[in-house]
């Protein structure tokens, strides 16, 4: 059991990172970003291609994260420029179109076969009692800790963070107060893209990593964000680790091992059933 839990930490951390990115873009800019994971996958594949072409390992990884940040920032520009006043459903629909676009462009550039992805921090191992933590696991869990801490600190303590919270609650008011809304929105998108790039790169060596499979990481991320109510960062992180644990426990039972992709779907169903205890109405009167 402990082995399973430890083994699920890498995936769990990545799900949590992706889920937190979804929650942040939803809270700050009112978009459910379906293109989130595919942008991360695009960054990861850029890193792989660069590495295969002879770019140094660290440089390639940084390049990948940077590309994901740029791509996501670009989506942010589109959102801020053309869809600032639209309803959440419209903006989310736009991200579905972008999901498709980035997916297909990636197919063309990267093909649809899995690659050998070098594990991150290959030499690093941490022995705690009988348990061994690999470099990937440490990065994943550490990444979550750093991100969670940074988000909490940023939103509570910095002026920009407070402004961003104001923006998410009252966009028009914030703009009237002279907040440079577009710049902030684009920055949120870029940061969330960078986190997605890092998360997908961490998880890529540990599983089937063709481009489409990595793009489908949007599902566990959505499930985690849904359990966090698209509001709570902490709950999303816990949910990310929980989903990975359930997946891996399933994978160790031979009879259900092949159905691992169903886990996020079942979590989504359960979360929705739980959430609809009370009726919720659309925008205020």
């Amino acid at each position: 059991m402990i082995d399973t839990a430890i083994a699920s930490l890498t995936s769990g951390g990545a799900y949590a990172l992706l889920g937190v990115g979804l929650v942040l873009t939803y809270r700050m800019t009112g978009v459910l970003n379906f293109a989130h994971a595919v942008v991360g996958a695009f960054g990861t594949y850029t890193a792989i291609v660069a590495f295969e072409a002879g770019v140094g390992y660290g440089a390639a990884m940084i390049l990948g994260v940077a590309v994901a940040a740029l791509l996501s920032g670009g989506i942010g520009v589109v959102m801020a420029r053309w869809f600032a006043e639209e309803a959440t459903i419209v903006r989310s629909t736009v991200t579905i179109a972008i999901f498709l676009g980035v997916l297909v462009v990636g197919f063309r550039l990267f093909g649809d076969t899995p690659r050998v992805v070098p594990a991150l921090l290959p030499g690093v191992r941490l022995e705690v009692g009988t348990v061994t933590l690999t470099g990937s696991t440490l990065l994943s869990v550490g990444g979550v800790a750093v991100l969670a801490g940074a988000v909490a600190w940023f939103l509570a303590k910095t002026r920009t963070g407070i402004v961003l919270r104001a923006v998410s609650e009252r966009p028009t008011t914030a703009r009237l107060l002279g907040v440079p809304l577009r710049t902030l929105v684009v920055a949120v998108w870029a940061v969330s893209g960078a986190v997605a790039g890092a998360a997908v790169t961490i998880i890529a060596p540990t599983r089937t990593n063709d481009y489409a499979s990595l793009a489908i990481l949007i599902l566990p991320a959505l499930a985690a964000a849904l359990l966090g109510g698209f509001q709570r960062v902490g709950a999303t992180i816990v949910a990310g680790f929980g989903i990975a644990l359930v997946e891996l426990m399933g994978a160790r039972i031979p009879a259900v091992a092949r159905y691992r992709t169903v886990v996020p779907f079942l979590v989504i169903l359960a979360a929705l059933l739980w959430m609809q205890r009370k009726e919720v109405w659309d925008e205020a009167r």
Binding site: L32, F34, T88, I89, I218, D282
Partner: peptide
């Protein structure tokens, strides 16, 4: 309300 149907149908 909202885009829950999109999430569940994708899953």
């Amino acid at each position: 309300r909202g885009v829950n149907l999109a999430v569940v149908t994708l899953g």
